[in-house]
């Protein structure tokens, strides 16, 4: 209990002290998760919408694969990405291992199935006659898809929240492919692991509280979007 209280106090101190190392880690964490989430949404939302809209042979199999992807263990993703990007791996010549690029690749693999899966479920939950009504009003296929996505926006935003939640708190894969290098690939989660291993529980707790705070703020912003403060209802 004392560690938690001390962690709170230290977290406040760290924030107000404007510690440059801490700010660097916070900015890197947000940038990493932001870029990963952006790429995941760019792939996941259209993919999920397409699977949700289209009736095609093998859709059941694709859905099962997607649902399996939603539960991918991050360490397994980290291991696969590590092997792919290691010097002897098929993409070793890129030189991405132990860089932010490798961490982005791993996080995208973890979060895009979540974004796609929840988007697909949201689209499939719409009124089956909605698409027909939209087309009957003169919508092109693109306009139909966009309107359907807008109608499913609550579910689509939930998909983004789920994707964000999965990567901002993720440590296994980023540790493996990023290496937790100070000043280069260290992010909040890997810093927490490091400080815990060093026995600096106060600092680890403080970083944890900052991570929770950031997640809370990010989710609040997303919730505002869902309630239409940014997106018109």
């Amino acid at each position: 209990m004392r560690d938690i209280i001390n962690g709170f106090i230290q977290a406040i101190e760290l924030i107000f002290r404007a510690d440059p190392t801490l700010y660097q880690i916070v900015v890197r964490s947000l940038a990493l998760s932001g870029v990963s989430l952006f790429i995941s949404a760019l792939i996941g939302i259209p993919l999920g919408a397409w699977i949700g809209f289209k009736k095609f042979a093998g859709r059941g199999l694709v859905t099962v694969i997607l649902y399996t992807g939603m539960g991918l263990p991050p360490v397994v993703v980290g291991l696969i990405v590590y092997l792919m990007l290691s010097r002897t791996g098929p993409f070793g010549n890129l030189g991405w291992l132990f860089t932010l690029k490798a961490m982005i690749v791993a996080q995208v693999i973890i979060s895009f199935p979540l974004v796609a899966g929840f988007t697909m479920a949201a689209v499939m939950g719409l009124d089956p006659q909605l698409s027909q009504q939209i087309r009957a009003l003169g919508a092109t296929p693109w306009q139909t898809a966009l309107t359907m996505l807008r109608e499913a926006r609550t579910g689509v935003i939930v998909s983004v929240v789920a994707g964000f939640g999965a990567i901002i708190s993720e440590v296994g894969s980023v540790m493996m492919v990023g290496g937790n290098i100070a000043g280069r690939t260290r992010v909040l989660t890997t810093a927490i692991v490091l400080e815990t291993q060093k026995g600096n529980f106060d600092l680890a707790m403080a970083l944890g509280i900052i991570l929770l705070g950031l997640t809370f703020i990010a989710n609040t912003l997303i919730l505002w979007m869902q309630e239409g403060r940014f997106v018109r209802k």
């Binding site: 009124d127 006659q129 909605l130 027909q132 009504q133 009957a136 003169g138 309107t147 109608e151 209802k233």
Partner: peptide, 13 residues
């Protein structure tokens, strides 16, 4: 051409 269906399908707006 346009259609009005038996069950009104309105957008969430």
């Amino acid at each position: 051409v346009t259609t009005v269906f038996q069950r009104p399908i309105l957008l969430n707006r």
